[in-house]
Design a protein around this nucleic acid. Structure first.
Length: 104
DNA sequence: TATTTGACCAAGA
DNA sequence: ATCTTGGCCAAAT
């Protein structure tokens, strides 16, 4: 039995490049309502480049909480990464959110 | 083991 | 549109 975190990571890895997902979608896909726990795990377990945390946004399409990152990292860099993958953002919110939103 | 916390969400005022 | 409230669940302390 995998742990919740592992499931989150695995699911996140299934998100194709150029797409984004939401905490809610992840929780729902896992059959759990731990939307918060998802973000919690991602925050405290920045498992590095293997986990595309920047592809996870809030349900409203806003980047949400990437701010307040740990030292060295900022939301701006994630936005740049997303843009590099084909996902554009506007003032902290994903543009064409529904179009780039990946559904499990 | 128990309590607190949090990168959330939906609904209400 | 913004702010507050309640709820939800796993991980950290």
């Amino acid at each position: 039995m995998k742990t919740f975190s592992e499931r989150v990571y695995d699911l996140l890895l299934t998100v194709p490049k150029g797409k984004v997902t939401t905490y809610k979608a992840i929780g729902d896909a896992l059959g759990v309502k731990a939307y918060r726990a998802v973000g919690q795990v991602l925050k405290r377990n920045p498992d590095a480049p293997r986990i595309p945390c920047h592809r996870v946004v809030s349900s409203d399409g806003k980047i949400g909480g990437f701010m307040g990152q740990r030292k060295g990292e900022s939301i701006a860099e994630k936005i740049v990464r997303l843009r590099n993958e084909g996902v554009f953002t506007e003032n902290g919110k994903v543009k064409d959110f529904e179009k780039v939103l990946y559904k499990f």
